[in-house]
Write a protein that binds this DNA or RNA. Structure first.
Lengths: 156, 156
DNA sequence: GTATATGCAAAGAATTTGCACTATG
DNA sequence: CATAGTGCAAATTCTTTGCATATAC
């Protein structure tokens, strides 16, 4: 647990209890959490935790390169604890995000046409293997956006 | 103008005046418009045009492959009239989106690890050439998100 | 002790929904 | 005429802001 404290200190971030808890959650968890999910999970440990703190903390972490902010899910930001270059697959049926382990050679350049590149994002949209297999869901039209509220499908 | 009508009819979309106007605007305009921008531009032609219709129309067009919905700009969806595969560059200072004319070979596959791929999105975040050149703006920290309201910078 | 972080409540903005009205085939 | 599209207003949801309190150094 002192490792996390060092990670923050090294980057000039005050290691508060909230920040350490968030960093632990995002690092362990291999998933791509939303503020909402993270808040729901962490209020169990910190009952007074506010979403404001989560917004502040995750933007700070993102600026310091500790997490990556994903704009895949329309209408809700997601955060990835894995900073190493990789791509993502977004399932338009269940809303799940799956890691795709390829990296873009072009992004390494650091600049394109004079524009400074800070981040490289690659993602694919479609229907995931599980949703394709699930009967009655096979004919989902491409490009259809499913709002967050009615997208909760368990992949048990 | 009858060409646009045919484009819609061919895909089983009723060619209403609103839809034809939207299709014309998105096709001509090489930019990546938001609902807000599109509404501001089109109320001049159709004073009664509602944002609801724009949301409906653009989602329909996206589902039919006439436009591509971009989730690059955090907090606001953008629509691209160019469907051909290409990437995008998002400037975190001015919020502008610039086309990057490279295409991803992996995306052509149609499927990855059993997941069906409908769309391929690649984008880079950073600071654009113009904003780098503008004095006093050169030290923008990477990853910082600028809300839409205070991001209006003219590139005249 | 001072600067910074947290948390609450309220404000702001994008998107969705319900329903009456209108236009298309 | 019947079906499908449009538009208004209200509701929802995500995100940001202001300020008082609490915490780290």
């Amino acid at each position: 647990m002192n490792v996390l404290k060092d990670i923050l200190s090294e980057r000039g971030i005050r290691p508060t209890f909230q920040r350490l808890t968030v960093l632990a959650a995002v690092s362990e968890n291999r998933s791509h959490v939303t503020i909402r999910e993270l808040h729901a999970a962490l209020v169990k440990k910190i009952p007074t935790l506010s979403k404001t703190t989560l917004y502040n903390t995750l933007e700070l972490f993102s600026a310091k390169g500790l997490v990556r902010s994903l704009s895949i899910d329309p209408g809700e930001a997601r955060y990835d604890g894995v900073v190493a270059p990789h791509h993502h697959f977004y399932c338009s049926v269940c809303g799940r995000i799956i890691d795709i382990e390829i990296s873009c050679p072009t992004g390494r350049a650091g600049e394109i046409h004079g524009h400074r590149i800070d981040e490289v994002h690659g993602y694919f949209k479609g229907v995931c293997r599980d949703c394709l297999a699930r009967p009655g869901q096979t004919s989902v039209p491409p490009g259809k956006h499913i709002p967050a509220q009615r997208r909760r499908i368990s992949h048990a």
